[in-house]
């Protein structure tokens, strides 16, 4: 049963991140996902400390606030003082992440958050933390949180799909149609922040990025339409969750780490196949005019 809950939880993370990651990588914003996933830390720690519980709502608020702070910082550096974009991202999120770690150390004795959990989560403990309906356990808390998030994300993306695709593919055409570019940008970023925060506890900051960038990138190599890309990305994400779990069991190591490793292997495999086929196709074409 534990296997089932861990794999299901990871699959839900994979589902949410595959959908949003597909948009992010087509918008060349994969590193914004990286920045947000690290930067939510101080907000989470403070909320954790103030509410003294793992209650989801305060943590969500805390994370949202620090998500906003990092966006504002990046904007400040890149727009106000004209620092190059990549450096702006780098400065902003490392700063907030450092503050988060300091806060953990400061509150360390009162709060059971630890540094390692922040980076690679503790998905192994998911099945222990159950919620109850009366006396009956109805499954792990993390599962229900991620399940509700998945419903929100899927609904949000279906509603906004057309506008999101249009603003992703051709921003100026979208603007000329009168579509509010900034609104849809924030719509997407809000979804990314939500997903990052709720996935944080199970897979940690860095591995959310593996899920956001990996499966969509692998799918991108072999798809013809954007809908297909999302579907493939979900497929790759979920299969990486399953394979990753058993790899971790086999090696007796971190589950989330193993999932990231499998995501990397999937990409390497698809990449090589695509390269190999391209090469053989080039050789197949007869030299014209010979």
């Amino acid at each position: 049963m534990n296997d089932f809950w861990i794999i299901t939880t990871a699959s839900l993370v994979a589902l949410n991140t595959a959908i949003l990651g597909s948009f992010l990588i087509m918008r060349k914003m994969a590193m914004i996902g990286d920045a947000i996933s690290h930067a939510v830390l101080p907000g989470i720690v403070i909320a954790y400390f103030i509410s003294n519980s793992r209650a989801s709502f305060p943590i969500l608020v805390g994370a949202a606030v620090s998500g906003l702070v990092v966006t504002a910082l990046i904007q400040f550096f890149s727009k106000k003082v004209k620092l190059q974009n990549d450096a702006s991202i780098g400065i902003s999120y490392t700063f907030l992440f450092a503050i988060g770690i300091i806060l953990i150390s400061a509150f360390g004795t009162n709060v059971d958050l630890d540094q390692e959990c922040v980076l690679y989560g503790e998905i192994a403990y998911v099945p222990i933390d159950l919620i109850y309906w009366g006396n009956q356990s109805i499954g792990p808390r993390q599962f229900w949180i991620l399940f509700s998030t998945a419903i929100i994300i899927v609904t949000a993306v279906i509603i906004g799909f057309r506008k999101l695709v249009l603003t992703t593919f051709d921003e100026s055409f979208a603007a000329a149609l009168g579509i509010n570019i900034v609104f849809w940008q924030y719509y997407l970023m809000a979804s990314v922040s939500l997903t990052t925060v709720v996935s944080f506890e199970s897979v940690g900051a860095v591995l959310v990025i593996a899920f956001i960038s990996g499966p969509p990138a692998t799918a991108f190599l072999i798809t013809r339409s954007f809908k297909q890309m999302i579907m493939y990305a979900i497929g790759f994400g979920i299969s990486a969750s399953i394979l990753g779990y058993y790899t971790a069991v086999w090696l007796n190591g971190s589950i989330a780490g193993a999932m990231a490793a499998v995501i990397g292997l999937q990409f390497a495999l698809v990449f090589s196949i695509v390269k190999f086929r391209q090469r053989s196709r080039i050789q197949d074409i007869p030299v014209s005019g010979a």
Partner: peptide, 10 residues
């Protein structure tokens, strides 16, 4: 040139 023609679309 303002768009990414690698975008997966027909």
């Amino acid at each position: 040139q303002s768009v990414d023609w690698d975008f997966p679309a027909s």
